[in-house]
């Protein structure tokens, strides 16, 4: 397995051994706008695929981040505490959000690869991804 895999909620995950690193897609950061605060609420916890693990806040709203895979949340990107805008600037790189120790690698098979995600994005009508944002 190589490269980023994506959820329909616009998280990405990349795996290195038993550790998965998770962030949000460039599309998601653009939709959210200026990110001013990131918090990993489930740090140290064992979580299931689809659980809310983190919150990303823009000027306007708070958005839940769901974990693409089950496991235990081992670490978060502490650099985001002082520089949350890194998520806007480099969503798929330095703007990663948390790492998780995988408990079921087969979950990755259900996620989209880059090409599939791009196709998925092309089916989305502009800003109407209400699923991302809670008021």
């Amino acid at each position: 397995m190589s490269g980023l895999r994506y959820t329909r909620d616009h998280e990405w995950v990349v795996v290195d051994g038993s550790t998965a690193r998770v962030g949000i897609s460039d599309y998601a950061q653009d939709q959210l706008g200026d990110i001013v605060f990131v918090e990993v609420t489930a740090l140290g916890e064992t979580v299931s695929q689809g659980d809310v693990v983190a919150v990303v806040e823009s000027v306007k709203a708070a958005s839940d981040i769901y974990t693409p895979v089950s496991g235990s949340v081992s670490r978060w990107n502490e650099a985001l505490e002082a520089a949350p805008e890194t998520v806007n600037e480099d969503a798929a790189g330095a703007g990663w959000i948390f790492e998780i120790t995988l408990s079921d690698a087969s979950e990755l098979d259900g996620l989209m690869d880059q090409k599939e995600y791009m196709t998925f994005l092309s089916t989305i009508q502009g800003p109407s991804t209400g699923a991302m944002t809670r008021e």
Binding site: G33, D34, S58, V59, K60, P127
Partner: peptide, 12 residues
């Protein structure tokens, strides 16, 4: 319009 391409912070 919620925002234009510059974004909310920059408009503000």
């Amino acid at each position: 319009p919620v925002q234009y391409p510059g974004g909310i912070r920059s408009e503000h």
